[in-house]
Design a protein around this nucleic acid. Structure first.
Length: 295
DNA sequence: CGCCAGGCCTTAC
DNA sequence: GTAAGGCATGGC
């Protein structure tokens, strides 16, 4: 059984695993104590996922990121959690204003994730008009109902369904699982990928705004969901998803960036957030605004 | 009860 | 190209 421990002091800027995995950017991990999003972890809980058919769990101890897997290697952990990102350099590129400073101080060590493209696409199709905990619940349900089961260390894990597995679901089934009006979006997008008509990875490598446009071909995907896939899965760290929280931040802190439409407002806030790492700033600000009063 | 949540689709101008 | 409705569900 592959296991390992990655010393925290070897990671530039350290890491806050809790903030990284419970900030609403990834919906593909589950906290083993079952209290995800309810409370800050009491102790050092394992977070579990399935990646490329292998069970993987990680936890943060006082001095390391420990991991255990049925077959994944350390490189996978480093990739998924973006452990090589240079957080001090990223902070250095961020604007020096009160909101951003507070957001960074609130969750130092939060790292972006690098999740697989298809699950991320579906998760954020499900995300519209939903709260973070319910999105996570919906993704967990899809894995349980349609994904492969994997036994590891006496526990059963469920992979997120493949495009083919999810395309075999019906709209009625997904409505019964609580997806509401997103059900046909999920089925139709899964069919597009399963049939080979398109894949979210096809956007990878295109210039940022072209990549975003490419992703909107999927049913249920507009500019905002496309930005989430670009940021959390395809490595476009400049992407700034304009959700309700960030729109509030724009109105309250950067009113000059509101240009009346997504494209131009996106360009303005991306510049205000420092350009190339604007998506990092966005994720810190989102996490701060959404949870600062709730813990 | 009404309001809101990591919005998008369709239709009408 | 932009604006308005409609849309499911659950928590508060």
């Amino acid at each position: 059984m592959p296991t390992g421990a990655i010393p925290t002091d070897t990671l530039p800027g350290g890491i806050d695993l809790y903030a990284t995995l419970e900030s609403g950017q990834s919906y593909l991990w589950r906290r083993e104590d079952g209290r995800m999003y309810e409370d800050a972890p009491d102790g050092q809980p394992w977070y579990c996922t399935v990646i490329d058919g292998e069970a993987l769990r990680v936890r943060q101890t006082g001095r390391a990121i420990e991991w255990e897997s049925s077959g994944a290697a350390e490189e996978t952990v480093r990739t998924l959690l973006r452990l090589d990102d240079d957080l001090p350099a990223i902070f250095e590129a961020a604007p020096d204003d009160p909101l951003v400073t507070e957001a960074y101080d609130y969750a130092r060590g939060l790292r972006l994730v690098d999740d697989p493209a298809f699950p991320t696409l579906i998760a954020f199709i499900c995300s519209q008009q939903m709260r973070v905990a319910r999105i996570h619940s919906m993704v967990t349900t899809l894995a349980r109902e349609y994904g492969d089961a994997i036994e590891f260390e006496g526990r059963t894990y469920h992979a997120f369904p493949t495009p083919t597995q999810l395309a075999a679901a019906t709209e009625a089934e997904l409505r019964d699982l609580g997806l509401g009006y997103r059900a046909p979006y999920v089925v139709r997008t899964a069919e597009m990928v399963a049939d080979g008509d398109a894949h979210p990875r096809d956007a990878d490598g295109l210039p940022y705004e072209e990549a975003r446009e490419e992703l909107t071909q999927f049913v249920g995907v507009g500019d905002k969901v496309a930005d989430c896939v670009l940021l959390f899965s395809l490595g476009y760290l400049e992407a700034v998803p304009l959700d309700t929280w960030i729109k509030t931040a724009v109105a309250d802190y950067y009113p000059e960036c509101d240009r009346g439409n997504y494209l131009e407002t996106s360009r303005a806030i991306r510049a205000a957030f420092g350009g190339g790492y604007a998506g990092y700033v966005q994720t810190y600000v989102f996490h701060y605004l959404r949870t600062r009063e709730e813990l």
